[in-house]
Amino acid sequence: MNDRLRQDFPIDWEEDHYVSRREFFKFMTLASGGLAAGSVGMAAWAAIPKGERTFEAVRLASADSIAIGGSLAFRYPRPQDICLLIRREDGSFVAFSQRCTHLSCPVEYQSDKDRLYCPCHNGAFSAKDGSVLQGPPPHPLPQIMLEVREGDVYAVGVRHGGEA
């Protein structure tokens, strides 16, 4: 009876599991391939230099229109990229992205401390080069490259800093 049953229903549980384990092996190797491809892609992405990028020059303001210690908000290079042009105490112009590198809160210029301050989490950046002075921001602020041409200030590109 048992032999006949075996002949009619030749299901071997061990065999059945053996095959499914092999399938699992194949699936895991495929997943491993996907993760390896992703890791190689990320390494390639990390290798791409992201330092300076030049964009079309945009006139921001005449140099005389900004008082020493004053600032002017503008958008560069895209309409959604809010930035801040600053005239420091020594008369030089600098400009930075206004988005804090922590959680994108807008930073404000504090001329008395010569820094850009983020009120959300008490972060601060140097107005000299955008480097992190205090707080949680992980990176310096992206700096807008400027040129002064015939008394007018132009934005000509964006420079991303390195580590904080």
């Binding site: 390896a36 990320m42 390494a43 990390a46």
Partner: peptide, 11 residues
């Protein structure tokens, strides 16, 4: 990134 990718490829 690069050591991570190298280990991942080795695995």
């Amino acid at each position: 990134a690069v050591p991570g990718a190298a280990v991942s490829v080795a695995i």
